[in-house]
């Protein structure tokens, strides 16, 4: 089943064309890796999907529902964008945990705010009609997520007391708490020491095994080959090559892909 369809996304920053017409679709439970050199538009594409950037052209459709259409400015109100964002989760390169809150509070904060708001306005949230019930469920979910990323013992620690790898695992749990349809990663291991990347990649692998739909921008070519169903190679704001990893990484057809990948195999 198709969960995401992206049509002709164009994004300019002033006169610089960063994305020059991106089209692709993603099936439920599939993992898409996006590779390419710096400046090829990978991160901008991810930021467009999470509505942190507004494309000048194109459409974003999730589960048949058009979330973004550059032609339809009515869909661009703050409130609409805010709710559309919840279809996507984003794990940042720099983690961006909230430093003043404990690990557990980082995970529960956003959903608690949403639950309180929904119960006040609509009378219920996820089947809970009282704030107390909703918060109890959110708290339990946070415990479950902490277990999933192997950080139960760090629930009451503050981000500054954690290693980079642990912080990134908390960031993954925090993104999962909002139950996004598609979880996006923006170079999740690029800010980590090499010995810490393994624990983060392991968590992402486990997420794939539970059938999560994910889009991963990464420089870890080996990881992309192992974990992805599809690999997209971006170059100069367009998709230069896209297909299963055996094809794109093992046997690239596009000369730019070959040149890019040769830099990794040389090492």
């Amino acid at each position: 089943m198709e969960v995401l369809r992206v049509e002709n996304i164009v994004k300019n920053f002033g006169r610089v064309e960063v994305l020059r017409g991106i089209d692709f679709s993603l099936q439920k439970g599939q993992v898409l890796s996006i590779i390419g050199s710096s400046g090829s538009g990978k991160t901008t594409l991810l930021r467009c999907l999470n509505f942190l950037e507004t494309p000048q052209k194109g459409r974003i459709i999730v589960e048949g529902k058009t979330l973004f259409d550059a032609e339809d400015r009515q869909k661009m109100s703050d409130a609409a964008i805010r709710l559309n964002r919840l279809h996507f989760g984003l794990v940042f390169q720099q983690f961006n945990l909230f430093p003043q809150y404990t690990v557990k509070r980082n995970i529960t904060l956003a959903e608690e705010l949403l639950a309180k708001e929904k119960i006040k306005k609509e009378g219920s949230y996820n089947g809970h009609t009282t704030v107390r019930d909703a918060l109890a469920a959110i708290d339990q979910k946070a415990d479950r997520l902490l277990e999933e990323v192997g950080l139960t013992v760090k629930a009451d620690s503050y981000p500054c007391q954690l290693s980079g790898g642990q912080q990134q695992r908390v960031a993954i749990a925090r993104a999962l708490a909002m139950e996004p349809d598609i979880l996006c990663f923006d170079e999740p291991t690029s800010a980590l020491d090499p010995e810490l990347t393994g624990e983060v990649l392991r968590v992402i692998r486990e997420l794939k095994d539970t059938g999560r739909t994910m889009i991963i921008v990464t420089h870890e070519i080996g990881f992309a080959r192992d974990v992805s169903d599809t690999v997209m190679f971006m170059d100069g704001g367009v998709i230069a090559e896209m297909g299963p990893p055996e094809q794109v990484i093992e046997n690239p057809q596009n000369p730019r892909t070959r040149e890019f990948l040769s830099r990794f195999t040389e090492r």
């Binding site: 509505f51 703050d78 430093p99 956003a110």
Partner: peptide, 24 residues
Amino acid sequence: GQQEAGQVLGMTRSQIFFKVTLLQ
């Protein structure tokens, strides 16, 4: 990044200001 983290978690502008950035 603090503001963006709040945004992608579906927080409103005022929630981000009061709950995330103000104390920092």
